[in-house]
């Protein structure tokens, strides 16, 4: 049997190692589109803007309310619009209550300076469930 030429084995092995290294780096590079995709999808799936929109509208409305029948009508309009439009267009259940059900004159909590109206927001689009209790403070009138 002819003797195997065993010279230059280090060179062969180093070349081999470099090839494996390049292969590993290629795998890492190939993950880049996947990372971009999952990040973008989770950003789009999360209803951040819807919740912020809803929250802003409720704070805006809540701070105008007073203790009369017009404000009860206003709250009925708000909750009906939010519930039905969210359900039909954003595929989400969006409900809220203020001070239990409707705005109360003396709020849910009170201290010597402020009356606090508790706004409870519930949002669920099947993927993200969001619940918040928000205290809207209102300066007490000086007596």
């Amino acid at each position: 049997m002819e003797t195997l030429n065993d010279e230059g084995q280090w060179i062969v092995m180093m070349g081999f190692l470099v090839a494996i290294g390049m292969f590993m780096l290629a795998i890492i590079v190939s993950q880049a589109p996947l990372v971009g995709q999952t990040t973008a999808e989770s950003v789009m799936e999360f209803p951040k803007n819807e919740v912020q929109d809803l929250r802003g509208k409720l704070v805006s409305m809540g701070s105008t309310l007073s203790d009369d029948s017009a404000s009860v009508t206003l709250q009925g309009r708000f909750s009906g619009d939010i519930a039905l439009l969210s359900m039909s267009r954003n595929n989400a259940i969006a409900t809220y209550s203020i001070d239990g059900s409707n705005w109360k004159k003396n709020g849910t909590y009170e201290d010597i300076f402020y009356t606090y109206h508790q706004i409870h927001i519930h949002y669920n689009n099947g993927i993200t469930e969001y619940t918040e209790d928000l205290l809207l403070s209102q300066r007490n009138e000086d007596t």
Partner: peptide, 19 residues
């Protein structure tokens, strides 16, 4: 198979821009 159009990155940017 991932193609650039599947990556939704520009979709996400357009969505945020619109909001």
């Amino acid at each position: 198979v991932y193609t650039p159009g599947d990556a939704h990155i520009s979709d996400m940017q357009i969505q945020q821009l619109g909001y």
